[in-house]
Every structure is written in structure tokens, then in C-alpha cells.
């Protein structure tokens, strides 16, 4: 198979900004007016209330991987419109717009990288591309990244940020849940370490497949994490939802997350997890 590799630098120049512009930015949670440069230095976390702004895949590459270590693969895989789907808009047009808006081919980027010198395979979803929805390409790239990690015996890290499966690819999208879970099961059977990092939001088919299947499930604080969306639940049960419902802290309390980690500490935590589970001596007597 021919696969495509591009250095970090080249990709960053094509990627478009989706975060708010301007020198001063208002915190979405506490309303504090923040100085942009300081916010950037703080990895887009409000210094006053710890609100984690939603950031893009290139930020995570910058924040979590060693400088210049990201080598993207399969960046050339693009979505097509297999069903010639037309809702209010044509899916084909939506795809074109999303590529133009984000400078990316899809809602996920995959590649090799290093965390404190340790090689890993990383897949990073990007909510700015059609809500981080999972269609054929996202599923395929998750499976390919998993297989790459398996081939090279590297830890796999997937950063999720997704509204769920992509309706415009209908049953194809649904089956990506099975495809990714199957790839992860193989990887697990061969002793691979998979760390799932859930960010705001991770819902629907993404949560109900690879995002909940980490050997370790890590989340950023305050992220919306669930299967059904809060609006659907509210409409179904006809009552208000409890405070903090489906937020990281709630999900951890109910036993489905291992740990909640602030963005500034994420790299260190990932590094520690890799060391603790894959580094050094194994207990297996041989």
C-alpha cells in the first residue's frame, strides 16, 4: 500500500484557524476576558476557572508530542460521497466546504510521534471538520493507525472529539464502529497499549466504539462524554437533566474513566502511563 507522509511543518501552514480571533477573548464559562497570548501559553485553558477551550488537532500535536516529531501518515485519504447523499445540503458540498474551511482532508489526523522521546502512534480527531463526525475515512484511519501501532509494537493514543457517527454515510458510518473495535481487539490480543483521550465533546458512535475501549480512558476536565446527546435524553424522558450530567467528572464518578487530566498535565500523564505499563521489566517469567 502506498501511504503518505508529510512533515509537521508543511501541514500546519495549510491548516486554517477555527478558534476566535482577536487580542482579547472572553471565557465561555466564567466570562473572564483573557489576553490571547496568555491563553495560548496556557494551552487554551482559562486561568481563572480552568475552562478548556475546544482546540484543534494541530494544537494537540503541538502540546502532546515532542517538537517536530509528528510524521503524519495517510493524510491523503479523502472522503467521497458513496450514497450521493442529499439532506438540506449535498454531502459532497459539505465535504468541499469542510476541506476549504479547515485545510484538512478529514476529521482525524494520524501519524507517528514521540512523547518525551518515546515513540507512539497518535490519532487526533478534529471537531472543526463536520463536528468530528465518524464516516468511512475516520473509521479507516483509526483502523490503519491501530494496525500501524500493532506492526511496530508502539503505544496507540487516540484523542477523540466527535459528535458521533456521520449520518451522511449512513450504514457505512455505523459499521466503522465495528471496524475500529475489531482492530483494537486484535491490537489488544497482541499486548498493545491503547490510551483513549476523551475531549469535549465525545458522544454517539465514537464513544460507543473506540473512545470507550482504552486500556486506560483519560479525559480532559468538563468534557461532555456520553452515548445519547443531552437534548435527545431530555426530549425522551421529558425532564431536566441533573447538574454536571455526562461531564467528565460525572463519567469518572460512575466508573467509566480512569483519570481526568488537565491539558497542561496531559503529556506528562501519557508519558507516565506508557512508562508504567510498557516500559522496563515485565513480570512474565520466561
Amino acid at each position: 500500500m502506498v501511504w503518505f507522509r508529510r512533515k509537521q511543518q508543511g501541514v500546519l501552514t495549510t491548516e486554517k484557524k477555527v478558534l476566535p480571533d482577536g487580542l482579547w477573548i472572553k471565557c465561555e464559562q466564567c466570562g473572564e476576558v483573557l489576553y490571547r497570548q496568555e491563553l495560548e501559553r496556557n494551552m487554551w485553558v482559562c486561568h481563572k476557572c480552568d475552562f478548556h477551550f475546544r482546540i484543534q488537532s494541530h494544537h494537540y500535536i503541538l502540546f502532546l508530542l515532542d517538537d517536530g516529531s509528528f510524521e503524519e501518515f495517510y493524510a491523503g485519504i479523502k472522503s467521497v460521497d458513496p450514497l450521493r447523499f442529499k439532506g438540506k445540503k449535498k454531502y459532497a458540498d459539505q465535504l468541499k466546504d469542510a476541506v476549504k474551511k479547515t485545510g484538512m482532508n478529514e476529521a482525524i489526523r494520524t501519524g507517528f510521534g514521540k512523547i518525551n522521546g518515546k515513540p507512539v502512534v497518535m490519532a487526533i480527531m478534529d471537531f472543526s471538520f463536520i463536528g468530528g463526525s465518524m464516516g468511512s475515512v475516520v473509521g479507516e484511519k483509526v483502523a490503519l493507525a491501530t494496525e500501524k501501532a500493532m506492526e511496530r509494537n508502539l503505544p496507540l493514543i487516540i484523542i477523540s472529539s466527535s459528535g458521533g457517527a456521520r449520518m451522511m454515510e449512513a450504514a457505512f458510518s455505523l459499521m466503522q464502529m465495528a471496524k475500529t473495535a475489531a482492530a483494537l481487539a486484535r491490537f489488544s490480543d497482541r499486548g498493545g497499549l491503547y490510551i483513549s483521550v476523551l475531549t469535549n465533546p465525545t458522544t454517539g458512535g465514537t464513544t460507543a466504539s473506540y473512545a470507550m475501549l482504552g486500556d486506560v480512558n483519560v479525559a480532559e476536565p468538563g468534557a461532555l462524554i456520553g452515548f445519547a446527546g443531552p437534548r435527545v435524553i431530555k426530549e425522551t424522558i421529558g425532564q431536566d437533566l441533573p447538574d454536571g450530567f455526562q461531564r467528565s467528572e460525572f463519567v469518572l464518578e460512575h466508573g467509566f474513566l480512569d483519570i481526568i487530566v488537565k491539558r497542561q498535565a496531559m503529556k506528562k500523564t501519557l508519558s507516565q502511563l506508557i512508562d508504567s505499563l510498557k516500559g522496563g521489566q515485565t513480570a512474565q517469567a520466561s
Partner: peptide
């Protein structure tokens, strides 16, 4: 399962 295209 799924459809996509690949370019470089």
C-alpha cells in the same frame, strides 16, 4: 467496509 479515495 466503507468508501474513500487516496491521493498524495
Amino acid at each position: 467496509i466503507g468508501y474513500w479515495e487516496e491521493s498524495s
